[in-house]
Design a protein around this nucleic acid. Sequence first.
DNA 1: CTTGCACAAGAGCGGTGCTCTCGAGATGGA
DNA 2: TCCATCTCGAGAGCACCGCTCTTGTGCAAG
Lengths: 245, 245
Amino acid sequence: MTAAPRTARALARATITREIVAAARARLAAEGPASLSLRAVARDVGMVSSAVYRYVENRDALLTLLIVECYDELGAAVEHADARIADRGDVTARWLAACRAVRGWSVGHPGEFALLYGTPVPGYAAPRDTVDPAIRLVLVLVGIVADAYRDGAVPPLGPTVESGLATLVAGARDVVAARGLIDDAPPELVVRTLMAWTTVLGTVSFELFGHLAGSVDDPEAWFDVVSLRLAADLGIGLGQAVSPG
Amino acid sequence: MTAAPRTARALARATITREIVAAARARLAAEGPASLSLRAVARDVGMVSSAVYRYVENRDALLTLLIVECYDELGAAVEHADARIADRGDVTARWLAACRAVRGWSVGHPGEFALLYGTPVPGYAAPRDTVDPAIRLVLVLVGIVADAYRDGAVPPLGPTVESGLATLVAGARDVVAARGLIDDAPPELVVRTLMAWTTVLGTVSFELFGHLAGSVDDPEAWFDVVSLRLAADLGIGLGQAVSPG
DNA sequence: CTTGCACAAGAGCGGTGCTCTCGAGATGGA
DNA sequence: TCCATCTCGAGAGCACCGCTCTTGTGCAAG
């Protein structure tokens, strides 16, 4: 990613690094992040464990590579789901499609989901490199809400009741503004979107971590219900009958 | 917990088991669940590692004991927070107090929170023993909503728009009914409460797992905003100005 | 008093992350 | 072309992990 590999050695190095990350990804998908062992990855690529350290600084660095890769993959999946129907201009459908893409990727990749949104690895602090890929998917959701807001699809927000709401979500507003999605977004809109995103991820997290067992039988239908209600709360929903599933 | 220890041996056994769990709890609080090692707690209680296997079947069993203890502690904290002001009859204040108790305990016990609501331990499936303590805290929230509903504080719910909503949350309704909170709870109420609980936990999870960094500066104030908006969505909120913090 | 049982301790197995050293081979300048 | 340098893979080794098995020992019930 830094410079194009020109020499044969650099080329080989890049290839082997990709091999290692791919093997690690396979084990992550199979066993989850906690039991991902560098030695096992080394065996998979036909190396002795110490040789892997030529390519990856340590286990945390390998996890970081995987985190970036997974965030990008998830972000791309959601972007794709939105882009496919964005021209139809139906913000509710776009919102639902984006949310479904989030759940779809997560259910299909529970190990990766756990790495991204589960318990952080004990001594691990996500480096800067991970934040950009991480917000990519959120920006899709924000973009949908922003489009609806610009087009006047969002009903009047009403007065912001809480004091200091703008400063509370100043960081989120800055991010949105920096990406050129909305200049000077109404704090009310930012708050609603942030809450909705929290609920979307919380619902997926509940499902994958087993906290829905016994309460909800059909997680997919439940997720649709939640997503559509969130859309309604955001002001971009139909506000009328939609059958789940 | 099964039978009262009568003999000296059984008494000693119970005491040492408690010691082990206490030491494990301390390490859990200090380092989080992933790096909790049975050998380390053995050292803490002045034993050799193989000796603790006399008291705890394996590492997963120890984690189960901790899960039950933590769920109970969290549930008790929320119950206490609610009970302290329940006689005032202000459901909004009760809801906020219960939510704050959830966050307060979680922020004060991040390692324990990760054990309860983070990534499940790889090969670990929560046994039956954990579900009763787990729902204890949720029942407090449901009870507040149920009280509000019984007292007529919840405005008319409107027609349930989604088809099959009752069957979707049948499990949750059964739990509520079995506890005698509401007989035949309106599915709409159950759905709203379940969504609100998801958002509460998602907000805490975001905060503790670092997904709020850069978006929200003051997580405590943000949590209050979220909680009060959830109350409003549930129909038990004031629906008017409330300043966070 | 003696038998038996529960217990603590130790050794040991296979696994982990990570470091160090060493030899072989490719790279690239003289 | 030749040689110094540098990279890489392999192996040994350290400290830690979960878990099992065996061995002694002291308490307690019969």
